[in-house]
Design a protein around this nucleic acid. Structure first.
Lengths: 145, 145
DNA sequence: TTGATATTCAACTAATATGTTGATAATATC
DNA sequence: GATATTATCAACATATTAGTTGAATATCAA
């Protein structure tokens, strides 16, 4: 997590605050366990213990994952007594979608480029095909002891 | 960054590989400097030194940010001699958009256009080279302490 | 050849992330 | 009141991130 994820008052700077929130949203989405939590909350509001049940980690760990989601604005918690009900808030996810959508023009561009190259290939079949990006780097990860 | 960012051989597990790539894409997008790099690449392919220029960090730091983007599949580097030209690959970003779009029905009533455009493009056949633009633009980055 | 340029690698440091276990607070339940 | 349940907090260990500086690699240019 970069320094941008740190919560600062962002005194009066709304653009910086939006950037900051966007960073937190994308970071929150970068973990598969957190994405699974969101998937579950997409269906129904749930307790922390219910959200933690499917995973092989402690409920404390899940609680902190939920806190990450809360800080990103993706989850709201309403605590009544012991239990804390978590519910989805897709507002920040929409902001993320808007950011990504600014690249949608290039999806169309890629589509057009492909169509164009296909047309060219149809006329001149000896031309080579386009390369597909493949990511297969290895990075070390932590394992449960 | 969670354990999910670690790559295991993923022997034959295509779903796990897709999850893993999604984690890396969202993580790559969670840093404002990396997002700024993508913004720049949205306009034109650029050298590492050109991408590093607007930021008050060392070129080595930017080089590693680019590596994060490359491992997420968002940036391709073609090195010719000394220089390494970075270009955008929006394919993985599209995958991220598709994931987010599954939450769109929550906001679809208000923001119908985005979901519609995403869904329209959702049936693209393949990834190809991105288009070019000649607009130059700089954005502010983080400051040195 | 010599030197400047472009980029990456290596080693180090500081901060952050994520997991654990144990303690604590608040509230149901007996 | 005594006890179990729900959730969070605290402290700790370890891994990862992200920055730095210095060295290495490769190429271009004079």
């Amino acid at each position: 997590m970069s320094t941008a994820h740190a919560i600062e008052p962002a005194a009066g700077n709304e653009a910086a605050h939006a950037e900051e929130l966007l960073s937190r949203v994308f970071f929150a989405l970068s973990d598969p366990l957190r994405r699974s939590i969101l998937e579950r909350l997409r269906e129904q509001p749930s307790l922390v213990s219910e959200l933690a049940a499917p995973f092989d980690v402690s409920i404390q760990a899940v609680s902190r994952h939920i806190q990450v989601l809360v800080r990103a604005g993706l989850v709201r918690q309403s605590r009544t007594g012991r239990i804390s009900t978590c519910s989805l808030d897709v507002g920040p996810m929409f902001d993320a979608a808007v950011w990504i959508n600014r690249y949608s023009h290039y999806w169309q561009t890629q589509f057009d480029t492909l169509a164009h190259s296909l047309e060219k290939i149809a006329r001149r079949p000896e031309k080579t095909e386009t390369g597909k990006s493949s990511v297969n780097r290895t990075r070390s990860g932590r394992k449960k002891p």
